[in-house]
Design a protein around this nucleic acid. Structure first.
Lengths: 227, 227
DNA sequence: TGGTCAAATGTCAGGCACTGACATAATCTC
DNA sequence: GAGATTATGTCAGTGCCTGACATTTGACCA
């Protein structure tokens, strides 16, 4: 404890080794989950694949869930960063939309550094179809929403007790999840596809709250009818 | 299997006994969770309290989570029913608001039939502060949102693929959860209080999506600033 | 170079959630 | 009341996860 701790010291053989085992565990886990299913994959199998003990696995991840959601975590992180970096003058809803739109590239880069995008999509389907994982993922979303609300409150110089940021983020977050789910049910793996779907869904948010619904209202309602 | 199965045959000593043990398990579980915390309460303890075997507990509930969320489940059920019963002419957003407003009474009645309302509120705090439970509850919400979306799609005579009901319900659901959380953090146990908070939050939904935020816009923004 | 310290890993024992299989006891039906 | 049905108990076993302790590995310095 002679020197101050650095957040992520890239130097050092030790740290590099740790990072490699961590990535290896994520990779092995996701591969097994995709092939065998989440429930039918044991932690022992994952550990064996990377040739570490089960105990070591649990020193990297608090639980089986965590390794399954490690990628989702990175994605969420990238999005929060993107929002925080939006110009201050932008209205909140617009800032969220713009951040989402511009962060797709960094997001897909983060993912591709660990597994191919198609594997990620397969893993997304596993998450959606596994109650335990879906639960955990929803909680993650809730935490991210909390952080986003804080970011927006700060941007707008609002009292932390002001509920408006939370209301906005909750609504937008809900819509994003709907769009994601639709993407997961489709066949189109591309980043462009999920970007488009999300955008179209967000476009619907305001008109959908208008009191009587038109027959086929909104900019792009029709293009979504087939998936 | 001579006669057709009835959904909930109130008659018969057997059924009544089952209902009683089920309620007893819920009651005992909630009481223990509130006092000792969720994680530190074992299924054996709950079963012992009701004087049944652990195995029997698992025949009533698929897991420890399920008994903890049994009440939430009833609440959600009451809400879905209320939405389904709204007059057909009503615009979707309005129908959700009205259903919510009128279902508080039946909701509190359902709860009070098992535990006092204050215990329910304590249990709500336990849920919010226990990762596992929070996760499971979020998933429940997602499932309910799916059902609500179907109900609305049917009301409006829409194609099931039309994303608008899902978008609406996701946004509204998110806002309701924000309101609930605020209620849970406060001291006011009354039904009137959560009804008011929820209503005020929903009032914020439309203005909050408007592009630049006013200083203190919206009908009742100010009354929410203290918790 | 070798010694020392801290961090990473392995091993072991154990608790708790949950499940299948089978035996027993309680209700229901006739 | 006999026989069928259904709820319950018991037991053994698997899998997730944790604490405690021993061992190894890489970092740092004389």
């Amino acid at each position: 404890m002679k020197h101050a701790m650095r957040a992520t010291p890239v130097c050092g053989l030790r740290e590099r080794k740790k990072q490699r085992t961590r990535d290896a565990l994520i990779r092995a886990a996701i591969e097994l989950f995709v092939v065998k299913g989440y429930e039918r994959t044991t932690v022992d199998e994952i550990a064996a694949e990377v040739e570490v003990s089960q105990r070591t696995f649990f020193r990297y991840f608090a639980g089986k869930e965590e390794v399954a959601l490690a990628l989702e975590d990175s994605v969420e992180e990238a999005f929060v960063t993107a929002v925080a970096e939006r110009p201050a003058g932008e209205p909140p809803f617009e800032a969220l939309r713009a951040a989402l739109d511009e962060s797709w590239h960094s997001i897909s880069a983060v993912i591709a550094a660990v597994v191919p995008l198609s594997t990620y999509m397969a893993m997304y389907r596993v998450i959606e179809s596994t109650p335990t994982l879906l639960s955990a993922q929803m909680r993650h979303s809730a935490l991210v929403e909390g952080r986003l609300a804080s970011v927006i409150a700060a941007r707008e110089g609002l009292d932390p007790a002001d509920p408006r940021p939370r209301v906005l983020v909750a609504a937008v977050g809900g819509v994003i999840r709907v769009a994601q789910r639709l993407w997961g049910d489709g066949d189109e793996t591309s980043v462009e596809s999920i970007r488009r779907i999300t955008e179209e869904h967000l476009d619907m948010l305001v008109p959908v709250l208008a009191q009587p619904w038109d027959e086929h209202q909104g900019v792009s309602g029709i293009s979504l009818f087939q998936t």
